[in-house]
Simulated assay, not measured.
Amino acid sequence: SHRRKMLKLCGEAEDKLAQELTSFELEVERDVIEPLFVLAEVEIPNIQKQRKHLAKLVLDMDSSRTRWQQSAKSSGLSSNLQPSGSKVDTLREEMEEAANRVEICRDQLSADMYNFVAKEIDYANYFQTLIEVQAEYHRKSLALLQNVLPQIKAQQGNPPPPPAHTGTHTRKAFGKPLEEHLAASGREIAFPIEACVTMLLECGMQEEGLFRVAPSASKLKKLKAALDCCVVDVQEYSADPHAIAGALKSYLRELPEPLMTFELYDEWIQASNLQDQDKRLQALWNACEKLPKANHSNIRYLIKFLAKLTEYQDANKMTPSNVAIVLGPNLLWPQAEG
């Protein structure tokens, strides 16, 4: 089916994109992350460790020097002479050994720092590699999408006609311009209008307060979604005609332009204000004849149903006046409010 082909194309495209992403991530890990991991987890910590060790050795050396100087002073020797005695000699040897350790550690730290600086270009290259790998990944992904997108658009632009017995539409109806919905579905009467009218003729004509009583919000939401998908279970909603009536009102109100059009708003209002009944009917008829073909067909279909509904006014309490009160604002409103 058309939907299966669309899903297959999209699925294949997503699979190829996933493969490209996997390849990209593996390449980044091998060529960028692993070398930088060595830098972050081995080389830099080693340098930091060496610096801490050097600082400790310097403290030890300073401590040894202080002890040697104090020992020399206590021996009563002048500053021009070297201190003598086994204790002083031992302290001097400790000081010299500490100084030697400092020198060795400092040399090692310097060597590590020089090695680090020498690899600076390599580290910069890792980031350059990252950008290059990212660019290649995006190029391949873009090429893949550019290749598959025309195929998807071709499928979407040439959908198979709906089966004759279903009378379904292929696009959402609620909130869409009337003519756009009719063109997309190949219908003369908007699907929500026809479906709701058909269901109400079967189960709602004698329901008291039809179009006046508010339906369950959850039921209304579900029915609107079903109408948009053209999957309506008549049996499910036969026990709740108020939900059907609510969906019909919602469709009419959510049209971007009222069924009776913005352009003719003033003419409808002027006609309804005429006191003479014959003149009022003629003016209303004239305005109706000026409606676009799609609007004219749908308003005519709807009015025929509403006329039928008022035949049951003893049961449903929906007189022509009541029908006008509850449905009028959903058929005509000024553009400023829209």
Rank of each mutant, 00 (worst) to 15 (best):
A72H: 01
L26F: 11
E34P: 00
R212T: 14
A239C: 11
G204E: 03
S141V: 10
S321R: 15
G11E: 07
V231D: 09
I325A: 15
L178H: 02
G328T: 13
I269C: 10
A226R: 04
W333R: 15
V32H: 00
R171C: 04
W268L: 05
E132L: 12
C10E: 05
P320A: 13
E25R: 15
N158I: 07
L9W: 03
L81Q: 12
K56P: 01
A243E: 01
I33E: 05
T319G: 10
T22G: 08
R212D: 09
D31K: 14
A40R: 14
E93V: 04
E43F: 02
V28M: 15
E267Q: 13
L149F: 11
L91G: 00
V102Y: 00
G11K: 04
N330R: 09
D314S: 14
Q335C: 06
N125K: 15
N125V: 08
K56Y: 10
K304C: 12
F211K: 01
R30F: 07
L142T: 12
K279G: 13
V213H: 07
S75M: 00
K73H: 08
S74Q: 11
A294W: 00
W68G: 02
F116C: 07
G11W: 05
L26T: 15
P256F: 10
T170R: 09
R65S: 04
D122N: 12
R3Y: 08
K176I: 10
D89Q: 11
I303P: 00
E20Y: 12
W333N: 06
A195V: 06
V58Q: 13
D276L: 05
I189E: 02
E311K: 14
D122I: 06
L36N: 08
W268E: 05
G76A: 09
E94A: 08
K172C: 04
A190P: 00
T22M: 12
G175I: 03
S185E: 03
K140S: 15
S110N: 11
Q335T: 13
G338D: 08
L144E: 06
F127I: 13
Y265C: 07
N295V: 05
T166Y: 09
L252N: 00
K304P: 02
S75L: 02
S218K: 09
Q48P: 02
F174K: 03
P292L: 06
G204A: 06
F24G: 03
Y301M: 06
T166C: 08
